[in-house]
Amino acid sequence: MKRRDALRLIGATIPAIALSSSRVWAAEDKFKLAIGQRGNWENSVCELGQNAGFFKKQGITLELLYTEGGGQTQQAVIAGSADIGIGVGTYGVMGASAKGAPLKIIGSSMTGANDLYWYAKTESGIKTIKDAAGKTVAYSTNGSSTNLVVLGLQKTLGVKFTPTATGSPASTLTQVMSGQIDVGWASPPFGVKDIDAGRIRIVARGGEVPEFANQSVRVMIANAGAFEQRAEAYGRVMKAYREALDWLYSDPAALDAYAAWAGTDAALAKRVRDEFYPKKNLAPDTVNGLDKLMVDAVTYKYLPAPLQADQVKKLVVAGTGPLAP
């Protein structure tokens, strides 16, 4: 081989070597995730997806922290102790952003609120949420989607009660059974066995607030500074998330994985997925009903006024740029 041809071959090889090196470096991308409420179907995507290898395939390693609810999740992202927050109430995110919090909405976690329900002890005499007038009704944390739905139930049904933050489904059940709280909240599979055994009864569902049906009540958020530094890597996180979500709805082995993770059985896992979490409701790439969400956020005093178009464009980056499907 002539020296000129050899040099040409080496020159052609360098970009390939550089690309290979870049991919090796990308394999070390690590993200800290804060996720509200371990155990429910929606919040299983990242951990089960990581266990199944979808994030590794995209060169991503996740460090997962489960919180008491969307309010705690949001604070972790704002503080920079988490790069991504999953399952955060949309009202709270918009309100925090309007006050200057460094947040980006990178995806929708849940459209609609059919997965959430409220319950009372069977012997309490509370059979519907209207029977809870003047009583305490639980939500997880301030700014969470459960907070949003409790406010929506009051508005929709015209019932006045006392919304009360109670934390996780487990701590809420303890407070209900001990008489500290009149009406608790949960999402399946938590509490389903207690309902079937007759210890508690469902008195309201999130679906009773019709305005939420086509709204992204929970979103995925990123710390704005971290996102701006690693936008391409965030794009790979979302690609892995989509692949993991597809797997959860297509492979029977995913139901077994969820059942083991949530401490339940495969039959209940299938019931939870099919009855409470239609796949379309978990589609991440569009934040649905944003204009109506802003109007309600003003009504409930999360926002002083609807966000301006430039504020929305700055905040909501789901499905755009490096996050595009």
Rank of each mutant, 00 (worst) to 15 (best):
G69P: 08
L19Q: 00
L64I: 15
S178L: 03
D291S: 10
K314V: 06
A79S: 13
K160G: 10
K121E: 05
R199A: 11
T122C: 06
G191H: 04
F31Q: 12
P15C: 01
E42P: 07
G36Q: 14
A318Q: 02
I17G: 00
D285G: 01
L33D: 06
A222W: 09
S171F: 01
Q215H: 06
F161M: 04
D265H: 08
G36L: 13
P163G: 04
G92F: 03
V237D: 07
I202D: 05
K301C: 10
A244S: 10
L303G: 02
G235R: 06
T61S: 15
D310S: 11
D265L: 08
L255K: 07
A259N: 07
N142M: 15
F161V: 11
S108P: 07
K121C: 06
D5P: 02
S81G: 14
V203I: 09
P304S: 12
T61D: 11
L65R: 15
T286R: 01
Q58K: 15
T164E: 04
T73F: 05
A318D: 02
R199H: 10
T111H: 06
K2T: 14
G167I: 01
G198L: 10
D256M: 14
G152W: 06
T136H: 03
N40L: 12
P163C: 07
A132T: 10
F31G: 13
Q72T: 14
G85C: 12
K270H: 10
L148H: 13
P169G: 05
T172W: 01
T172Q: 08
